[in-house]
């Protein structure tokens, strides 16, 4: 790698054509660490319990027949479609509501925090929520949501909106600095209220940040175990990760069924990643770097 960089930079002209083959090969070999666990998931999900011998072949060889019977059974046991539906509903409503609420909050606070002590306080107050670990809120939250009758998906969505607010606040107020006040003043001259100006001018202008926020929140909500576990643990309602947890507790010995179920729970996010890879990587990077 070092050699080639030297070559590349000292011979400006061939920069485009010269590829670093050794590093490429190493990186391709390294992909095994990513694919091996996935490969294992797939082969075990398709195998029958009788094929699960205790030697290397039993662990690593593909199944003798590719049958979907494990999947059908796993879907039934984990109530797959309902769990999937719950996960989708929770994630989508969290993302939509968060974007609406967080961007408004970011706008109101971001436009005033530089000249108003109150909004500066509001900003620091809400951003500092980032340091509060869920573990300390968990137990009171269980009591409080039960008392309010929202120890269900509605409560989970509300908690997600609140817990994601600090990060979005940082992102939206930061992004708002790029949107000049003059844009709003022009609308005001035309007689539009602040509220209307926001929805017609500011909200659409924050589109790149909406994408970042959506990706970050969607991934956090989709994969989260802890919040649904403590809020709706005892109920019949499952999210996809929660269904895996319950399944594991109940049928920990049937690995083939379990792995079929794990694979089923990975497929939606993998498909989503395949389609929106650019947006997801961009969103996650943006969130980490600016947040």
């Amino acid at each position: 790698m070092e050699n080639s960089t030297k070559v590349v930079y000292s011979t400006e002209k061939v920069k485009k054509e010269r590829k670093n083959i050794p590093v490429t090969v190493l990186l391709i070999i390294g992909c095994i660490t990513v694919f091996f666990p996935l490969y294992m998931t797939v082969i075990i999900a398709f195998k029958q319990p009788s094929e699960m011998t205790n030697d290397i072949a039993g662990a690593l060889m593909p199944p003798s027949a590719w049958s979907f019977s494990n999947f059908a059974q796993a879907m039934e046991v984990t109530d797959f479609w309902n769990s999937l539906l719950n996960s989708v509903l929770i994630t989508v409503s969290t993302v939509v509501l968060s974007i609406l609420i967080h961007s408004l909050a970011g706008y109101a606070v971001g436009r005033n925090m530089d000249h108003s002590k109150f909004y500066k306080f509001a900003y620091l107050y809400m951003v500092s929520g980032m340091f509060v670990p869920f573990a300390i809120l968990m137990m009171p939250e269980v009591k409080q949501t039960a008392m309010m009758g929202i120890d269900n998906p509605v409560g989970v969505v509300i908690l997600y909106i609140v817990f994601q607010l600090p990060q979005s606040m940082l992102l939206y107020t930061g992004y708002l600095r790029n949107i000049p006040l003059e844009l709003e003043e022009a609308a005001y001259v035309d007689g539009a209220s602040t509220w209307r100006t926001y929805w017609s001018i500011i909200f659409p202008n924050m589109k790149p940040m909406h994408a970042t926020v959506a990706v970050l929140i969607a991934m956090a909500a989709w994969n989260d175990v802890m919040t649904p576990l403590v809020l709706m643990g005892g109920s019949d309602l499952n999210t996809l990760p929660l269904a895996q947890l319950n399944f594991q507790t109940a049928f920990s010995t049937n690995y083939n069924l379990a792995f079929a179920s794990y694979l089923l729970s990975m497929i939606p996010i993998l498909i989503f990643y395949l389609i929106c890879q650019k947006q997801i990587i961009g969103g996650v990077t943006n969130g980490a770097v600016k947040g």
Partner: peptide, 13 residues
């Protein structure tokens, strides 16, 4: 794209 895959999967599974 490949090296980012582990990040999108749920940590429980």
């Amino acid at each position: 794209g490949i090296y980012f895959i582990p990040n999108v999967l749920g940590s429980l599974v």
